[in-house]
Each structure stands twice: as structure tokens, then as C-alpha cells.
Write a protein that binds this DNA or RNA. Structure first.
Lengths: 106, 106
DNA sequence: TGAACATACTATACCATGCGCAGTATTGCG
DNA sequence: CGCAATACTGCGCATGGTATAGTATGTTCA
């Protein structure tokens, strides 16, 4: 996908990935891979950002001698997802303009 | 609309605005305003960018003693629009993941 | 008359974000 | 032992939307 089009979408994808259960970096990348590709250097800054924004809380769990950082979605994170879905209407408006409505139905 | 979500979309909106007839800066902003809002400081860099990319050609017309720069869509610009519509499938995939498919039909 | 506003374009600088690349450390497979 | 996978961190870059400001002309209205 074009990099620019991912802007603002990836962050919400990550939040959504945490909706059903808490998860950690590597797992999130794998879970999202069927829908959207993102690298570690993209994900980890996102995780820090949404933590700073209060959209997730973090706790560490030892796993094979290493610490795994689990992320847990907060109500603020939920609200962020809903806000995105709301904003999307405007994106669709722009998209519809670009697509044109020459053919009424597809 | 969230700034980040506009990324990559605005440029194609401008190209699309030039599809039916040549136009110039101020007019483009007015034509797009029902669909997407953009300021002059956003539009003019876009115009220079798409010109440099060969998506449009430019010619000046005198109007009330001032020069108006008209932009004309090239085949490359057309192709850019089609490329965007193609990329959009992946965006929809990410969006569908975020929206979830709890309700099968809307 | 002149202040305000619309038209029309230009230039500079800022900031957010996705990504490449590199580094650290452990487990497990061949 | 080398290499891949796991798991996380840090640096620096390019892109692109925006604020702010400046230039210049025509129209409107008090």
C-alpha cells in the first residue's frame, strides 16, 4: 500500500488488534499481517505514542527469560477507534469524488 | 477531517478536479470544497508537485491584468488517479478490519 | 476616500508519521 | 557453530499538510 495512505490508519489498526485481548509487539505484527503490513520500526513508535496518549496501558510479563511488554486497550483507546470510524465518512466523501459516480452501481 | 487521513488523497482530488476541464488554484479550492477542504498553502505545493511529476501541464492566461496559471491533466495524471483507485482496495481491507464485521450487513 | 474583502499566487518553516537500518539479547534448529 | 525467529530499542530521513506572511489587483460599501 502507498505509505501516505497508511497515515492515521495503522495506529487505529493496532488499537483494534488489542480490542479482543492484550498483546505484544511481535504478535501484533503477525496478527495484522493479513490486513495491513507494518514493520517493527513502525509499530514500536506507535505503541509508545498510544501509550502516551492514554489509549493503552502496559505491563511486562516474563517469557523465556525475557520481558514481554503486553498492551491493554483502555476506554480512551476504544473511543479513539470510534472517532476514527466517524472521521472515515469524510474520507469516503473524498474517495467518492475521486472515483466519480459515472456508473451508479458497481 | 484528521490531517493524517488526508495524506495521498488530496493530491488525487486535485488531479480529479482537473479531469473535466483545466482549472487554476483558487477555482480548484472552491470546486473541491464540497468534498474536501484544503487551504492555499496546501494546494500550491501540490500543484508544483504534480507538475514536477508530469501529471499536469501548466499555461498562463492573463485575467484582469494578472496571470492565472491553468493546469491541464496529462495521461500520466489520469494513470495516477487509476493507480490510487487500485491502491484503495488495500485501504478498505485495513478499514474493514478496524470496523470489524460483527454486523454482517449494514 | 479608504477600509475591508475576494481573487490569485509565492515563500518559509514546522510537525507528525511511516520506514530503513542498525543494535542487543535469547531460544532453537541444522 | 551459524542462522533464523523472537522481542525490543534508537537514529535519521522523506513525505506532505499547515500556519503564517507577503505581494498585488479589483470590487464593495460606509
Amino acid at each position: 500500500m502507498d505509505i501516505q495512505l497508511k497515515r492515521g490508519i495503522l495506529e487505529v489498526c493496532v488499537l483494534k488488534a488489542l480490542e479482543k485481548q492484550d498483546s505484544y509487539g511481535y504478535q501484533i505484527i503477525k496478527d495484522l499481517s493479513p490486513f495491513v503490513l507494518l514493520s517493527e520500526s513502525t509499530l514500536y513508535p506507535i505503541l509508545r505514542r498510544i501509550e502516551a496518549a492514554g489509549c493503552v496501558t502496559v505491563y511486562s510479563v516474563e517469557h523465556n527469560g525475557r520481558l514481554r511488554k503486553y498492551y491493554h486497550l483502555t476506554p480512551a483507546g476504544q473511543a479513539r477507534i470510534l472517532g476514527f470510524l466517524n472521521d472515515w465518512n469524510e474520507v469516503v466523501k473524498a474517495y467518492d469524488f475521486i472515483r466519480g459516480n459515472d456508473d451508479e452501481k458497481t
